Amino acid sequence: MLKELLYPLVKYFTPFNIFQYITFRAAYAAVTALLISFVLGPMVIDWLRRLKAGEEVREDGPSTHRAKSGTPTMGGTFIIFSILISVLLWQDLRNPYTWIMLLSVVGFGLLGFVDDYLKVFKKNRTGLRAGVKFIGQIVLSLLILFFILRQGNEYTTLLYIPFFKNPVLDLSYWYIPFAVIFIVGYSNAVNLTDGLDGLATGLVIMVGLAVAVFAYLSGRVDFSEYLQIPYLPGSGELAVFATALVGASIGFLWFNAHPAEVMMGDTGSLSLGGTLAVLGILLKKEILLLIVGGVFVLETASVILQVLSYKLRGGKRIFRMAPLHHHFELSGWPESKVVIRMWILGGLFAIIGLSTLKIQ
């Protein structure tokens, strides 16, 4: 919005020329989202406390978590609001990518909100039934893909793999089910990881920063040609969205760090996971996003392996408890140590992902 309003006035006031630069708008999108989170955080937390929107802790989980019972949840509402305001202010509203991303963050956020609402206010411990939630995610993913394919280019259905400069496969119509599985899977992966104070939030920040770099490089002819990655006109604007997401998440982490004053709930985790997946699809970095978000992949894999082991091996488990972070807790690691070590691992995955841009 600010670009549309102020950049045309550059002939009267030359400093407004700065609004054409993505780096400037991306930086201030992050700052804006961060400040909005700081301002909204205490008000939303107080509002949630008055509504008695408290977290219900699983009885079969680590005993240390019982003290968290009653901690306000649905804090993802102010993450989403911070992203929305920042993006509307700083991103180019004429760019179709802007509206695809807004649809993603709001759509998955609403789905998560309904799930949280049923758990918190209707006292339904399971929230949305798994089948209903899954169908909702698929329908929303298909709607997002409809708009992505309408804006499609020569790269849309191609599949790129790190270390290969050329696409390995054109999925053609098969790209639709592939992309749906990717979006739904990534959304649920972040949701599974959101089990400890600050864990998912910190990892989302690292993935978001890496995605911002991918977006900026993909939107530049010179850098994309030098790195031999697809040049995607207009994709540089996605860097603005990614930094807004990072800024909002940092602001939320201020209140979500151990001991957490608020949990993001499915409102936040489904929204952030789905949004990151859509960014990966638009930037043709689907496989690379699995590397950058390696901790999310490990957490999801631990749940799948645990279920398979339990069903196929007569009730035997691989881990003390899944997802993986609970296994480490039950092995005697303090919560803060699990979180910090997972963050270190997440940072390592992000560095590896960024390094692949030059190793092709």
Rank of each mutant, 00 (worst) to 15 (best):
I85N: 04
I144Y: 11
V139P: 07
F78Q: 04
L159H: 14
Y160Q: 01
F19A: 02
V246R: 11
F164K: 14
L145Y: 09
V262S: 04
Y21W: 13
F223E: 13
G314F: 08
R313F: 12
H65E: 09
F164N: 09
F108R: 06
K133W: 03
V278N: 14
F296Y: 15
G353S: 07
V168D: 02
L276W: 05
L140A: 01
G54F: 04
V44K: 05
H65A: 08
Y226S: 04
L171Q: 08
I135M: 13
I135S: 00
G268M: 13
L140Q: 06
L103K: 01
L6I: 02
I176C: 01
S355D: 03
L330W: 13
W99F: 07
R49K: 15
V221A: 08
S104G: 11
E329F: 04
S187W: 06
I318Y: 13
W47K: 13
A67I: 15
Y216H: 12
V106R: 05
G265R: 13
V114L: 15
G109I: 03
L199N: 05
Y7M: 02
L324P: 03
S82G: 05
V338N: 12
L272D: 01
I83E: 12
G293C: 10
V204W: 09
G236I: 07
Y117T: 09
L143G: 11
Y155I: 00
R49S: 04
L84F: 10
L35P: 01
L142F: 10
I144K: 10
V207I: 15
P62E: 10
L270C: 09
V114Q: 03
F16W: 14
M101N: 07
N95T: 04
A26I: 01
Y216G: 00
Y310D: 08
G314Q: 11
L227G: 11
K165H: 11
F296P: 02
N153H: 13
Y21D: 00
G131K: 15
E225D: 12
G70F: 03
V339E: 03
M206D: 00
S69V: 06
S331E: 15
W333E: 00
K133I: 03
A242H: 07
F241K: 14
G131L: 13
P177F: 01
P233G: 00
V57H: 05
Q91L: 02
D266R: 13
K285T: 10
